[in-house]
Simulated scan of single mutants.
Amino acid sequence: MDFEIREDRERSRGRRALSREWAAYLRLVQQGLSNKEACRIVGINLRTG
């Protein structure tokens, strides 16, 4: 996978970074991961996922 987990998960890095994270999240869910696991890997809040 070509996506890197952010080191600083608390601060957003703008709309582009979030759209990259969202795309990575969607790929993980399509591969069969649960919402909780995909959010943990990408570094986004469960509610975002």
Rank of each mutant, 00 (worst) to 15 (best):
E7F: 13
S19R: 15
R16S: 10
R20L: 03
I44L: 14
S12R: 14
S12P: 08
I5Q: 14
G49A: 08
N35T: 04
A24D: 04
R27F: 01
Q30N: 09
R6D: 14
E37G: 01
D2Q: 11
A24G: 06
D2I: 08
I44F: 08
L33E: 02
I5H: 14
R40K: 10
E21C: 05
E10P: 02
A17S: 11
G43F: 04
L46R: 12
E21K: 12
V29M: 04
R40Q: 11
R16T: 07
R27W: 01
R15D: 12
N45Y: 07
I44E: 02
R13W: 09
R27T: 03
E7T: 13
R6N: 11
R11K: 15
L28S: 00
F3P: 06
Q31L: 11
R13D: 14
G43P: 03
R15L: 14
E7W: 12
L26P: 00
N45V: 03
E37P: 00
R9D: 04
L28K: 04
Y25S: 00
R20K: 10
T48I: 03
L26A: 03
L33H: 03
R6I: 07
M1W: 15
Q30S: 10
T48K: 14
K36F: 01
I44P: 04
R40E: 12
L18R: 10
N45L: 09
D8L: 13
R16Y: 11
F3V: 02
Y25A: 00
R15Y: 15
F3L: 09
R20Q: 12
K36Y: 04
L46T: 13
W22T: 05
S19E: 14
R47D: 13
M1E: 12
A17M: 11
N35E: 10
L26R: 08
I5G: 13
R27Q: 08
E10S: 13
N45F: 05
F3N: 07
S34M: 06
R16W: 12
R16L: 13
V29P: 01
L33K: 04
L33S: 01
